[in-house]
Simulated scan of single mutants.
Amino acid sequence: MPLCVAQWPTAALAHGNRSGDLRLLHPYATPTPGHASTGAVYLVAIDNQGETAERLLAASTPVAERVELHRLQQDGDVMRMQAVPAIAIPPRARLAMRQGSPDGHHLMLAGLRRPLVLGERFPLTLQFERSGAVKVEVWVQQAPAAAGHPQH
C-alpha cells in the first residue's frame, strides 16, 4: 500500500521541534552574500508550555565558528545589537525570535564557514538550562511576513 501525505502524523509536516514543555517553531535563517562572515537565525517562536521558567544558554552549528545570543536594544534613535548571556522564556509564555519581533532576540552566526543559500537547510543545537540540548533543522529562506510588519 503506497504511503500518502494524509497518513503522515501532523508533527512530521510541521517545521519545528518539541522537547518536554518547549515547542520550537520554524527555525530559519536568511540568505547571506558570498563574502559575509555573519548571519542570523530566528525562530517564529519558542513556546514554553510548562509551569517552570526556561533559559536558552547557548547554541552551535557546523556552518559557523560560533553562535551568539543577541538582542536588539533601542539606544536613542538607533537600534543596537547586544550580546546577552541567556534568553529567558517565562512559564506559559511565547517568545518571538523573528525579524521585527518586539524583543529583538535572535542568534548571530559568527565566522560563517560558507554562505547561507536560499533553499538549503542546516543543523543547529540549542542548549537550554532545564531541557538540555535540543537539535533543530534551520531552513534558509526569505523572512516570513510578520503580522503588522511589512517586509522591507
Rank of each mutant, 00 (worst) to 15 (best):
R114D: 14
M108F: 14
D47Y: 04
E65K: 12
V78L: 07
L72Y: 15
G111R: 11
W8S: 00
R71W: 13
Q127P: 10
E54Y: 09
R92K: 15
L112Y: 05
A88Y: 09
E65S: 10
A88P: 06
Q99G: 13
L57G: 11
A64W: 05
R55I: 02
P144A: 00
H149N: 05
V117D: 09
Q74K: 00
L112C: 06
I89Q: 06
Y28S: 14
L43K: 06
S19D: 15
G100D: 11
D103I: 04
L69C: 00
A45Q: 09
A58N: 11
R71G: 08
P90D: 13
Q74F: 02
R80E: 01
P9Q: 03
S60E: 15
H105F: 01
P85S: 05
G76T: 01
M1P: 14
M1K: 07
Q82G: 03
V67I: 11
P91K: 14
E68R: 07
T30F: 02
E51S: 14
K135E: 11
W139G: 13
G119M: 10
A53M: 07
A40I: 04
A40Y: 05
G119Q: 11
R55K: 04
Y42D: 10
G132K: 10
E137S: 08
D77C: 06
L116Y: 02
G16E: 13
E120L: 10
L116I: 13
E129F: 06
P115R: 07
I89C: 15
P27F: 12
R130N: 06
D47P: 04
Q73K: 11
L69S: 02
E129Y: 06
T38C: 01
A40K: 09
R55W: 14
V67F: 13
P2I: 00
L56A: 07
H105M: 02
G39F: 08
S37I: 02
A133H: 08
V140K: 04
A58G: 06
G119I: 10
Q151C: 03
L112I: 04
A145I: 03
S101A: 04
G76V: 04
L24N: 12
V78A: 08
T32F: 00
E51M: 09
P9H: 07
R98D: 15
A11E: 03
E54L: 03
V5C: 05
V41A: 03
P102C: 06
H26P: 04
L3Q: 07
R130K: 08
Y42V: 09
H35A: 08
Q74S: 01
P91T: 10
N17L: 07
Q49W: 09
Q127F: 10
H26L: 07
E54W: 15
T10H: 00
T32I: 04
A64K: 06
M97G: 02
P123K: 05
A11M: 01
L22T: 13
L126V: 12
I46Y: 05
L126W: 12
P33Y: 13
H35C: 08
A143V: 05
V67R: 07
S101E: 08
M81G: 11
E51C: 07
I46M: 03
N48G: 02
T61Y: 07
L109N: 14
A64Q: 08
